[in-house]
Amino acid sequence: METGGIRVNNLHKTFGQGENAVHVIQGASFEVKPGELAALIAPSGAGKSTLLMMIGCVLDPSSGEIWLGDTQVYQNRWLEKDTRTLRREKIGFIFQAHYLIPFLNVLDNVRLLPLANQEPLPQVEARARELLGYLGLEEKLHAMPSDLSGGQNQRVAIARALATRPQIILADEPTAALDIERAHSVVQLLRQIAKEQRVAIIMVTHDERLLSYCDKILKIVAGKVDTLPPPETTETFI
């Protein structure tokens, strides 16, 4: 039986209190299985990042349930004392390119987290080189992020997210800083990773041209999540 994936049930998030309360997420329920690439879409300010950060155990929900794989991690409160350990061990984060550590070179950016996880160095080293090779960055191991293009940095960010073999990858607008061709190749890559590494990936995007690569669409409507099938072609889906 395959473990991994994400399940969210009746999740709520309210910012502020009383008159100032903003009910951003109001009873979201959905599932993303291992090997699936899901797109999270909604207009700006609808709560995409908020939802993603709750699944990522970064932001405290107001109520609801979250499962990472077979483990329930949230039941109106965090069930693990240290959410950071959960993040470190189960989740890979991909943000826009400029969220790499600027003072570490490409290889170190990728190695940092598994080494902090106390994985043995030779293994970490091999994995990092393998990932960077896989992403076409074998020539850039010792380059600093500032020396690379946006697309290259985005691939470094993907390698970093994969370095700890997470069950889940959460990507917040990973293509926002890229031109359309690079955006296509990054999303294709995410799809390939989802299939090959059996990872559940949720990707926030604004670009409907990228949706046809995804297995399902999660759309936030009025604080709830509608799960939709992917469009047949890029043209017909709006």
């Binding site: 990522g56 950071r84 350990t85 959960l86 993040r87 890979g92 943000f95 550590i101 600027p102």
Partner: peptide, 14 residues
């Protein structure tokens, strides 16, 4: 960078 490190799970200790 520190917030990012904390977010991706780097322990405070480091």
């Amino acid at each position: 960078e520190i917030s990012i490190m904390k977010l991706i799970g780097i322990p405070n200790r480091l």
